[in-house]
Design a protein around this nucleic acid. Structure first.
Lengths: 207, 207, 207, 207
DNA sequence: CATGAATGAGGTTTCATTCAT
DNA sequence: TATGAATGAAACCTCATTCAT
């Protein structure tokens, strides 16, 4: 988590420029992958010259680190918020709300999800660990809801880990398989159908 | 599907060498991505010299094309075999067998699956179409079973496409998220649990 | 010796700023060389911003020119003072005093000496000529003393040029080979021993 | 002392090409310094293309390392040979022969000497130590002769280290101050005069 | 059939210099 | 007078591909 080199003393500006860089870059990374995306492409995409871009980063890899860090934080935040949802709701509502929240989050950060699917396996050890940590936190949040539901008899689940993974994956796949869903479903329809299916899986059968 | 250049007239040898090249390359592509994998790495991995390797391919891209073509064929074969399964079994058995068959196939070709997840979005239009066609064929096979089951009252499914996608995805994810499953489940356990879950989703509730 | 561009009409200030710039820069040039020393490093070392620094110089090369000019002047001054020393002293005292004066001067301007040793060969023709002229002036001053001593029978020297060069070099080497002398000799010890050795070389043997 | 990357398995060729590279590069480094010398310049100087040059080195720095290593070895060899000279000669002959040998060696490797004078201060710690070690070995060889001569009453020297340094420096300066000597002295004349001077310094005065 | 040295275009990165504020 | 963001040329380095042996 070391500081990234910059030549500018103006922290506000640095933050702003880095934001532009990351969001342009993640789009390109998601489409073409890290290696195929040239610095020139990134610079062009965020209307900077190459030289200027390098005032805000130290090297190309830094862009990836920053993008991963941002996504990681988003995941941790989501997990934290989710863990509070059980305070005010029953398991069924909590699960419904969390699925919807997660799927919407994925929809808002499609590029990040695709980028991670593309690059995860080629990341260095520490970056990779950090990404996985974020994903595990989200899964743990779902597991928590499922476990609570099992304890009070609302849900019946053989293996919470696997079910949580299934839910998370269905969300991610929305971003990853856009080619399949585009034009067929809106995100809300997709959520509705999948939520129904998931509920069929986990709810105790009411005779 | 244009012919790939070779300098050798011996088709047997060409076939053999290309097989070596593809299987070495797909491993590397899955781990490091196409661009990060150098011709040198591929040559080393299959114990050829660069010069010799270039006797059997025309350019680096050809290796990718060949790998994709091989995967495509595997998918089409699988779909075809599956479509015959209903001739001799009921929908429940057919679904169970097909899930198992598909998941095992993914397990046997993990590298290919990861490679596709990594590179699909950066492929050129025609290669991409061809890959998607293969995936759709597999999905269609599952849809076919589900639809048959619905017609005879065994299954109840809101949206066959989505359910088929869910099944296929759960299979692929076995390869893609090895970091999550490794050491926790064997492929057979994974199949068993997921099959059970899927059945809960699609089987008509027997009161 | 063309004028160096400045945006400031205040000559006092220009002079002052340039002094700061040169002394910071020469230190860095001596350690890292001209090319490896960035404008940024120089600006930081003299607590200016890049923009401000460029108000007092036209281009990076100007800093080098100014540094060389300053050293050149120091050399000429030294040579001039030396040429007067024979007016009031005999050759032995004059030589002793001049050696001491020269070695102390080198000690005071170590950075400049190292900088010249590093960069001399890569200078353009005219800068280079100017530096050499300064060095020759100093050598000539020593030659003059030696020649005078030879004429009056105090010294015996085969080749005044070479002996003068030897003396000057022993002085310069104090700055250049600091790694060898540091902690072993003070400048005054170094002067004492070397003076003795030089005297043994040049004094007529008194039987 | 780690191996330098090469793509060629032919060690003979690698050795040969590296020899060409080093000798071309050292010339350029001596004249323009390491940083000002571009890879293009080096490639041009040894009639290679940039790409081909990079088959025999890993990075520009490697060229410097190799050049330093070669010079280092030359120094150690010289020191070793010198240490045997006392076996068969008296101190006076040994000193005369060694001075001549050393000065000739410097003359043969002028570029290396100039290169070291230019770059020593900007080298990283370990390269630097290695160069200094070589220089100290040569100095120690001279010290050894001087000390032997003092013990048997032939020489009288106040400080062997300083005298050894003086001798070595006079040799190096032949390469460094070519501008001063060129056209005035041949290397043999330079050796003759300096040897005489040094002898005057170190020989016990015979009344 | 096999080899690997050679090529050169294109990628990333650095840095002196300018100029609007 | 002072600032530092922006520029773009040029540096280093990689790698797919060819071709003489």
């Amino acid at each position: 988590m070391q500081k990234i080199r910059t030549f500018s003393p103006d922290e506000k500006l640095v933050e702003e420029r880095r934001g532009q860089i990351i969001s342009s870059a993640v789009q390109l990374f998601a489409k073409n992958g890290f290696t195929r995306t040239g610095i020139r492409d990134i610079a062009k995409a965020c209307n900077m010259t190459i030289g200027n871009l390098y005032h805000y980063i130290g090297k190309k890899d830094d862009i990836m680190s920053m993008a991963l860090a941002a996504g990681h934080e988003t995941n941790l935040d989501f997990a934290e918020r989710t863990n509070h949802s059980l305070d005010s709701m029953g398991p069924v509502d909590a699960l419904t709300a969390t699925i919807s929240g997660y799927f919407h989050m994925v929809d808002d950060t499609k590029d990040y999800t695709n980028f991670v699917y593309k690059e995860l396996r080629s990341l260095g050890h520490s970056s990779r660990q950090s990404v996985l940590e974020g994903q595990l936190a989200v899964m743990a949040a779902f597991e928590n809801i499922l476990r609570t539901g099992c304890l009070d008899g609302t849900f019946t689940v053989t293996d919470e880990k696997l079910t949580a993974n299934c839910i998370v994956t269905l969300g991610e796949i929305w971003a990853v398989k856009q080619w399949l869903f585009k034009g067929r479903y809106t995100i809300d329809e997709y959520i509705k159908i999948n939520t129904a299916q998931i509920m069929r899986q986990v709810l105790v059968e009411s005779s």
